[in-house]
């Protein structure tokens, strides 16, 4: 699995949403999006749900780690850094 890292902690709204959507759109099935953010990006998760992508949201020390993949049988728990 190839990791596409998006560290959005320093980015201003709505740039994280813009970038993550465009990454998500172009991502192939061998890749997964690894987003790091200050806030839980609910709209992004809703879209992932709607598209039936696998996703994982983890809050560690007040930093959100969001993993999204188009693969349905994938264990994202193994890929999260925290």
């Amino acid at each position: 699995m190839k990791k596409i890292l998006l560290d959005a902690r320093e980015m201003e709204h709505p740039i994280p949403l813009q970038l993550s959507l465009s990454y998500l759109q172009s991502m192939s099935s061998g890749e997964f999006l690894y987003m790091i953010h200050r806030k839980n990006p609910i709209p992004l998760i809703e879209i992932a749900k709607e598209k039936k992508y696998s996703y994982l949201v983890k809050n560690h020390n007040d930093i959100w780690h969001i993993l999204i993949s188009k693969e349905s049988d994938i264990n994202l728990e193994d890929l999260v850094d925290v």
Binding site: P14, I15, Q18, L19
Partner: peptide
Amino acid sequence: MILLQQHNM
């Protein structure tokens, strides 16, 4: 940044 991201998207 906001301008460019809107355009790129």
